[in-house]
């Protein structure tokens, strides 16, 4: 298996899907001639040309809506939000039209689009560029959302998203773009709605997604080595659809759950997961469900403070120890 970056894995997925299906095209700001603001689409315009890799003006609402209209006639646009924060400029298009046109047409309209881009903080850029709106997307029936935590999942989930007949958001992470993982040469897909057990354990379960899943894995190793706690780490991969079964099986086995995410805590993804656990695994719990989320304030600019605001290994360990107490 080749060791490749998260960025390269996404690019491979896009490249392969463009070649597989003539209806797949990429659209977004700086995706073509500039090679992508984060270089995710580097080389794709040179390879596939103007028709398939398309630079847009800075008009998120227009190109999001255009993608929706085009998808109605069978084009399968993958639109890049330079930052997922910029999807807020296109809320009416993405959260009204992409999510509800199928429903309001009584099932007559399909919207096979992918909305992808980085959705993370921790980059010292302040509140307007640090949103993690997977909870907001998941709150809109009609939309799907995945948050790959590593290169293997990023490639497999991206391919699944592109082939999906519904609108799918793929939440990437700029802090992961340069990280490397092993990715097989041969074709594979990671299905939506299937969580991944990153590490097995006996004493408690950490449920996480995106980059936080990797931080949780790191914290789990420390907890095992320094505190003798055996931690199972469940990486959700997909937020909607959600693999409830894997979450519940793990919690039923360990009896304890710590939920870790970069969302702000109020109405975050983990608020829903916490509810599911108490409802469906209540009798198995040896402790209340605990959470580690971003500290509940707009994203702060100052680097050392932001590094504390979003979940980090230290905060996860602290949360785990509370959950074990």
């Amino acid at each position: 298996m080749a060791l490749i970056t998260y960025r390269e894995a996404i690019k491979q997925a896009l490249d392969e899907e463009i070649q597989r299906d003539e209806n797949v095209c990429i659209m977004g700001e700086e995706v073509a001639q500039y090679n992508g603001a984060y270089k995710v689409t580097e080389g794709l315009w040179a390879k596939h040309g103007d028709k398939r890799v398309i630079d847009t003006p800075i008009s998120e609402a227009a190109f999001s809506g255009l993608a929706i209209g085009a998808s109605a006639l069978g084009v399968r646009p993958v639109i890049e939000m330079m930052f997922m924060s910029f999807s807020y400029v296109a809320i009416d298009q993405l959260f009204n039209n992409a999510s509800f046109c199928r429903y309001m047409s009584g099932g007559l309209m399909n919207i096979p689009i992918v909305v992808r881009g980085p959705a993370n903080g921790g980059t010292n850029v302040g509140a307007t560029h640090s949103h993690t709106p997977e909870n907001m997307v998941a709150n809109h029936p009609g939309l799907k959302v995945v948050c790959p935590s590593n290169a293997y999942d990023a490639k497999g989930l991206m391919k699944a998203a592109i082939r999906d007949d519904d609108p799918v958001f793929v939440m990437e992470n700029t802090l992961l773009y340069g990280e490397k993982w092993e990715v097989p040469e041969e074709e594979y897909i990671v299905e939506l709605g299937v969580a991944n057990i990153l590490k097995e354990g006996e004493d408690m379960t950490i449920v996480s997604h995106g980059r936080c899943a990797m931080l949780s894995l790191q914290a789990a190793k420390t907890l095992e080595e320094k505190h003798g706690i055996s931690v199972e780490v469940v990486d959700l991969r997909s937020i909607r659809p959600l693999d409830e079964e894997t979450i519940l099986n793990s919690v039923k086995k360990t009896g304890r759950a710590l939920l870790v995410e970069e969302n702000k805590p109020y109405c975050g993804v983990d608020a829903q997961i916490s509810h599911i656990i108490q409802l469906k695994a209540f009798d198995y719990l040896d402790a209340p469900v605990h959470r580690v989320s971003s500290i509940d304030a707009p994203q702060i600019y100052a680097k050392p403070l932001e590094d504390w605001q979003i979940p980090n290994e230290e905060r996860i360990i602290e949360g785990a120890l509370k959950c074990m107490a």
């Binding site: 809506g65 993608a67 929706i68 085009a70 998808s71 006639l73 069978g74 084009v75």
Partner: peptide, 17 residues
């Protein structure tokens, strides 16, 4: 006005295809 970019998208698809 929410439908106007969708209209452009329909045209985009015609051209694309």
């Amino acid at each position: 006005a929410g439908q106007t970019p969708l209209g452009a998208g329909l045209a985009f698809a015609l051209k694309y295809k």
